[in-house]
């Protein structure tokens, strides 16, 4: 059949090449965009500093009161570095759910679906760019602050080596989760409550304040069972207190969580796009 637009057959490899280039461009643009607003991001680190400070005082007072030097193998300095790490990750979350929610509601989604690139991957690239900028700035500030407060970090070489990998998996899990919640905009009037629930649970049960071992019992049991710890506790502990079997366990947990998250994401996305096709946005 003769089509009006002559389209040379592209090989699979070529297609992949184009796609990759497309998304890396989005990624770069996102970084540049976020760097332009760097002032904003630096402001946000105020909270990080305050938080680390408050907890340093708390741990110091606690340890002194009990006359101990370490808790489940964590010294005060370890705890502070742990907190610095979890907060670096936790505070780097961009406004993904709100963005998707708005795009769904405004019909922007329907419009973007017409573009020759995957809506999901487009946002993934954009998200990664934004998150990366925030991660780096948070990390820099957190590093300086923790260093000033408690001295050099207890990181091991192995921990540092694998850290990018586990963080990458962690933020990818975050993407799957928060993107899916954003897609709920198709069915609910407000996605904010769901976002808040998940985000807050992820903080408490993800071990943002202290390693799970330190948490008091009922919470500790719950947290160890749920997948929230794959995002905060896992990577932080890997960095601060690297243990091989723990690391392997974390990787497994992250892969499984990411797989399930991605599955949920794509199922929701499928249903959502079908809805767009029927209702016209």
């Amino acid at each position: 059949m003769n089509t009006i637009i002559a389209q040379p057959e592209k090989s699979f490899k070529q297609n992949m090449g184009y796609a990759l280039r497309k998304y890396t461009t989005v990624f770069h643009v996102s970084i540049a965009n976020n760097l332009a607003y760097m002032g904003e991001v630096v402001f946000r680190t105020i909270f990080l500093v305050v938080f680390v400070y408050v907890f340093l005082q708390l741990w110091t007072a606690t340890f002194a009161a009990k006359g101990i030097h370490s808790l489940s193998g964590f010294r005060i300095s370890d705890m502070v570095w742990y907190l610095a790490t979890t907060e670096t990750i936790a505070l780097s979350l961009p406004q993904l759910t709100r963005l998707i929610d708005q795009e769904v509601r405004s019909g922007q989604l329907a419009y973007l679906l017409g573009r020759p690139c995957s809506y999901v991957f487009y946002h993934y690239a954009q998200y990664l760019g934004g998150r990366l900028v925030r991660l780096v700035i948070n990390a820099a500030v957190a590093f300086i602050v923790a260093m000033l407060f408690v001295g050099p970090p207890p990181f091991s070489w192995m921990g540092l080596l694998v850290w990018p990998l586990v963080v990458f998996l962690a933020i990818s899990i975050d993407f799957a989760v928060y993107f899916s919640i954003g897609l709920l905009a198709f069915w609910t009037e407000e996605t904010t409550p769901f976002f808040l629930i998940v985000n807050r649970l992820a903080l408490v049960l993800g071990g943002v304040l202290a390693p799970l071992e330190v948490l008091p019992q009922p919470i500790r049991g719950l947290a160890q069972v749920l997948p929230f710890s794959a995002v905060l506790y896992g990577p932080a502990r890997t960095l601060v207190h690297f243990e091989l079997d723990h690391f392997i366990g974390l990787l497994v947990q992250q892969f499984i969580t990411l797989a399930i998250g991605s599955l949920v994401l794509f199922v929701l996305y499928r249903i959502a796009t079908r809805r767009v096709n029927i209702n016209g946005g």
């Binding site: 009037e189 409550p193 808040l196 629930i197 807050r200 408490v204 948490l215 008091p216």
Partner: peptide, 20 residues
């Protein structure tokens, strides 16, 4: 629904933290 969910979540969240 959203209204009550938000109220409940906040109360639950606060309770969780306080319990901790």
């Amino acid at each position: 629904i959203s209204f009550w969910v938000q109220i409940f979540t906040m109360a639950a969240n606060d309770s969780l933290w306080l319990f901790f």
